[in-house]
Design a protein around this nucleic acid. Structure first.
Lengths: 221, 221
DNA sequence: ACCGTACTCCGTCTAGAGACCGAGGCCCGC
DNA sequence: GCGGGCCTCGGTCTCTAGACGGAGTACGGT
């Protein structure tokens, strides 16, 4: 896009009031034009698919935590179908893993919701050009998260079934309970657990449960 | 306050943009007048203390999660010093424990950030009269949280030593490792673990680890 | 046809977990 | 002094967890 055009924005956040706040923020900068809003990732994706190319936004302000489809997953899918779009991730919390996941998914920038209007506009202006604008704490989280990833990177070598078992372990269930819940024998559960321990390089189920909670793989964590 | 007066509001939230959104929400209803804003509980408390009684707000819209002092703690302290104020808790997440804590601290209502402007104004109008306005999911969370509290309310019947052991279990350590770290014998560790299981009404160390993470008793959780 | 991966199940075996019993030392309040 | 709570340690016992080896099925790619 040329420097004189208006930059078309899409806001994706499940909180009405956050969207309202963003709109007032963006009113300060006339070059940004909010042309669409969605309340979750899936809705955003559908809106993009159902719109003509010239109607699509240039930039998407995407919340990280949303129902239906979260920001990381939505970013991944949107970047696959519409790689020309720039996505800025917006979030309340600064979690190392999430920052890494967002950047890996294709987000240009990662902005905390504590930003002022000026800071946000600065970050968006950079993002339009594909330039990430990160505050010091975000970039620290990014490097910290990457370092953790490489040292204990056993994130996704897990089977679907193994992930199921892991989640149940993280709920505090015994092998017997897991076997009943999944309709398999205890022996099979033990096999899965052994494989999990081997892949994650841990020693017992308690450490698996701790890992799952630390990584945020379990809901009520 | 009489029905004709304007209702003076204070907004407490660490996110600039949420405050901006709330202001635009409240512009729809002229009887509400936002007279003050704070970005955390401590700041709100200080503002109240440094203001004359006639300058103080009638109603406070308080975010739950904030730096410095969170919404529950702030509510507790504000209600102690200014019991005539009504406080509406505002949050992104529906956690049973938090709802109970908020109500116990003295909040009139508990509102999710997903509300629309109309719903928020309705809730605030009720809160002014001291009437809690809860959506179905919030009241469900409240009753669920209260039930959990009574059934497994063994939050603080734990000994100092037991808490130490619990934290190490929540780190994924074995009895032997815990014994070495605390310089006691394995037998003693087993005693503490048994007492923990009895007091928390759980069945094994993995469930203890899960409990500790769920309750947020461990840092990297 | 062959190989690789995922999922399933079986038996055996060892070490740890946890229950249940008891006991001694310590400190504090009655 | 005496009781009670906390921390400590011991023994015995049962059961689960997990390791290890083997094996069958199914599905998909080469």
């Amino acid at each position: 896009m040329s420097g004189m055009d208006k930059c078309k924005l899409m806001i994706v956040d499940d909180h009405d009031m956050v969207r309202a706040g963003l709109r007032t923020y963006l009113m300060l900068e006339p070059k940004f034009d909010v042309i669409a809003e969605a309340s979750n990732g899936l809705e955003a994706l559908r809106m993009l698919r159902n719109s003509a190319p010239e109607e699509r936004p240039h930039l998407i302000l995407m919340d990280l935590m949303m129902p239906e489809m979260d920001g990381v997953e939505a970013t991944r899918m949107i970047m696959k179908e519409f790689p020309e779009l720039k996505i800025v991730m917006l979030t309340s919390f600064l979690e190392d893993e999430k920052v890494v996941a967002a950047v890996e998914a294709g987000a240009v920038s990662y902005v905390l919701k504590t930003v002022s209007a000026e800071e946000l506009i600065y970050a968006l202006s950079g993002a339009v050009k594909g330039m990430p604008v990160m505050t010091a704490d975000v970039s620290q989280a990014l490097t910290r998260g990457l370092r953790q990833r490489t040292t204990q990177g056993a994130d996704e070598g897990l089977t679907e079934r193994e992930r199921e078992v892991l989640l149940l372990i993280a709920e505090g269930q015994s092998n017997k309970e897991i076997a009943e819940e999944l309709h398999i024998s205890i022996k099979t559960v033990k096999t899965h657990v052994s494989n999990l321990l081997m892949k994650c390089e841990l020693e017992d189920r308690t450490q698996l449960a701790v890992l799952a909670h630390r990584k945020g793989w379990v809901k009520t964590g």
